[in-house]
Each structure stands twice: as C-alpha cells, then as structure tokens.
Design a binder for these strands. Sequence first.
DNA 1: TTGTAGACTTTAGTCGACA
DNA 2: ATGTCGACTAAAGTCTACA
Lengths: 88, 88
Amino acid sequence: MSDQSIIKQIIGKTVKAIRIKQGLSQEDLAHECNVDRSYISMIEVGRNEPSVTKIFELCKGLKIKPSDFFKLVEVEYAKLQEKDGESS
Amino acid sequence: MSDQSIIKQIIGKTVKAIRIKQGLSQEDLAHECNVDRSYISMIEVGRNEPSVTKIFELCKGLKIKPSDFFKLVEVEYAKLQEKDGESS
DNA sequence: TTGTAGACTTTAGTCGACA
DNA sequence: ATGTCGACTAAAGTCTACA
C-alpha cells in the first residue's frame, strides 16, 4: 500500500531537483523529451509514475545517466524504508 | 516507435538472466515479490514493461540493487542505440 | 516449468483549457 | 512558469486455466 505510492513521489522529487539544477523549465524539459508539459508536472507532483521508457527519455533531456538517476531514487527509497521499518 | 518497445525487451532479458543466475524459477521469484507467476513470464518475454515500483520489488527478489539493474539495462540500451544510429 | 490467452480493473500517457 | 481538471486511448497488472 505504501510502497506503490512512495516510488512515484521519489521519482517526482528527483526529476524536479535535477531539472531545477539544470536551469530548465518544465516546458524546456517537455520539449526535449517530446512530451506534454502537463505530463512533466504530473510526474513531479507524484501523480503519475512514469514508465522506464519515459524515464530514459527524461534522463536524456536532463543529461543524466538512467543508472545515476535510479541511484538517487534508490537512496531516497532506502531512507524511507528505514522510517517504515521494513525488515528485509 | 522503436524506443518504446526496445526497453521492455531489454528489461525482460535482464530479469531472466539474473533470475537464472540466481537459480530461481519464475514461481520462486513471483513468490518473493508477491506477484503472479504469469506476470513474471510476461515481463521476461517482453510483453509488459514493468513499472519502476515493480522493478524495485523484482530487484529485492533478485537480490540486486535497482541501480545495478538499470546499469545493465542502460548498457544494452546503448548498444542498440548504436545499431539504430541515434545521434546525440 | 514456462508461455499464452482471455477477461477484468487500475493506471499511464496525451491533449486542451483554465486557474 | 506551474498545477489541475476532464476526457479519452493505450497499456500495466491480476488471476484462472490451458497448452
């Protein structure tokens, strides 16, 4: 229940953080990736969880390697797992 | 058109390769991740593209870090991009 | 042990318009 | 420059059963 929604929140925050750091607007990024601007917004806000394909495209626009992107996500995910107290 | 289907093929092959290496059956993995076995099959065959959330769960069962998983995917993806002749 | 089919519910993803 | 609503099409994801 928690897991399914946690990931998309993290992805959204991560995309936004990188986009800001690159000095891009949502529209800039949307244009780079050939998607609608509103879709970028949905992702960043955590309303939609982008598919891997989309994330690869986003990473192209964000000029970051997908594996590096997921490393960031992974770290945040691990943090939240601690809080929730997940015993592997 | 090509890109959208390439990724799921790569993900499928990658999941399968790791699963085999771990000596797990599809059913073992399905049980680890609390999903149906047929779903694992669909992924491996490249019929469905699992969401990031699902991939994180799969990685837990496969005992691999998501970022490492995506590194493998990324490498294969890069290879195919060469073949297709993607500039950038 | 794996692939697939079918039927179903939920969600991603596209787009235009408005706050 | 960003979030959201509404409506739509496509695809994910679940499950049972059969090759």
